[in-house]
Design a protein around this nucleic acid. Structure first.
Length: 139
DNA sequence: GCCAACGTTGGC
DNA sequence: GCCAACGTTGGC
């Protein structure tokens, strides 16, 4: 079981959209970055991830679960690109802001901070637990 | 709205 | 295979 983080611009696809898809989940499509794609190829059904709102909000807002392993991205004919399906699990009681993460003694080295442009990224178990605690949500 | 950082493309 | 030019992302 591994932990991940999915980044999205809320005006394009936000937590509310994700929740509306219910248990059917939704393709995390449109990723055109090899690093992000490779992480998705390494995901397994049942892995958990944070759902992060970029741009204006800059906060982790909820937890999602990988409900289908990597498969071809249906939004392109280019077979280089793959994506997983994810479904919403539960929201955070309190969104965890990027600013909190940057100043937290154990979270300053997160990929989210160090490589802010990567849209799909791994999260360590320690990071997972710390952010869930900040969010007021069980891991 | 700006700009730094990064990834990709294409000419050589 | 290198590297300059360009496009995109996302924090500020």
């Amino acid at each position: 079981m591994q932990y991940w983080l999915f980044k999205s611009e809320p005006s394009t696809w936000g937590w509310g959209d994700q929740v509306a898809r219910g248990d059917a989940g939704e393709e995390w499509d449109g990723v055109r970055n090899y690093q992000a794609r490779n992480f998705m190829r390494n995901m397994a059904r049942g892995d958990l991830g944070f759902f992060y709102h970029s741009q204006k909000e800059k906060a982790v807002v909820g937890i999602v679960e990988v409900c289908a392993p990597a498969h071809p991205d249906s939004t392109t004919d280019d077979d280089r690109w793959a994506c997983v399906d994810i479904k919403a699990v539960r929201p955070f009681a309190k969104p965890v802001k990027l600013e909190q993460i940057k100043t937290h003694e154990r979270l300053g080295e997160m990929v989210l901070v160090k490589n802010s442009r990567l849209s799909v990224q791994p999260v360590s178990k320690d990071e997972w637990l710390a952010i869930c605690a900040l969010g007021g949500t069980k891991p």
